[in-house]
Design a protein around this nucleic acid. Sequence first.
DNA 1: CCCCTCACCTGATCGC
DNA 2: TGCGATCAGGTGAGGG
Length: 298
Amino acid sequence: MPELPEVEVVRAGLEPAVTGATVSSVTVFDERSLRRHSGPAEDFVDRLTGRGIVSAERRGKFLWLPLGPSTASGTEEEGPEALVVHLGMSGQVLLRDRETDDRLTRIRIELDHPFHRQLRLNFVDQRIFGSMAIDRLLQTPDAPSGLVPGQVAHIARDPLDPQFDDRLFLARLARRNTGVKRALLDQTLLSGVGNIYADEALWAARVHFDQPTSTLSRPRAKLLLAEVRLVLAKALGEGGTSFDAQYVNVNGASGYFSHSLNAYGRQGKPCPRCGRPITRVSFMNRGSHFCAFCQRVR
DNA sequence: CCCCTCACCTGATCGC
DNA sequence: TGCGATCAGGTGAGGG
């Protein structure tokens, strides 16, 4: 699902259900879904079983559930840990009762919750680009208040984060020597933006995807950042973008934002601004959708 | 250090 | 119906 709005929909759906719950059992059906876990499946299962879940956090497209103290004694000086989830291209976290199975479930986590009683988290992932992992929580240099998993430490804040630093972003962007869409997709520069919302924000700001970052004027860069924020916030308000049942919230429901797309997936259809057809070109092994009239390199 | 390409995967869908 | 080709919203390792 997974750009910022879709991941945030999952995080927000998970939070009330998992906070205060205890992991009662873990089943790994496909070990490839542990690609970001350093260790075998048994290690993942052992370290997760019996742990309490403290909250549900997110940075960019990474999601994590901080864990309470381990019941295994003597190892707590290692510091706090979290269950890290990345949805990749096709991952879902589905909140179910203990009887419900989902096709393509790669990992199943069963929870006991004081109010919601017995729950089941099915991690479903067609392409297995997503993953779960247990990772240590670290203090990051840019976050005096926040702990993030080690594997998320290099990810920048997202533009909806109140602590996102606009001036720092604009300065780093201007120093880049690449095309602006590449920069938008670079999660170490700003996080949460993927192919859909990059194309949508570029369309809204009337910027060509391959405009060199070094020649993008500061006013246009600021406008682009503002449009990134707008499109992310709007999509979040509509429950994310889903074209099919692949992108859903924790209850399996789809978002509505696909009805609001102006450029992404609309090749051949009229640009909502000027009426000329939207172009699709291959770029970075994916599609870039833009209006060749409204969005020109300059 | 920065930038870019590519490998990693499966399943749904489309055209023949 | 069947079969091969094509496509999909992400990330990080490794080469230049």
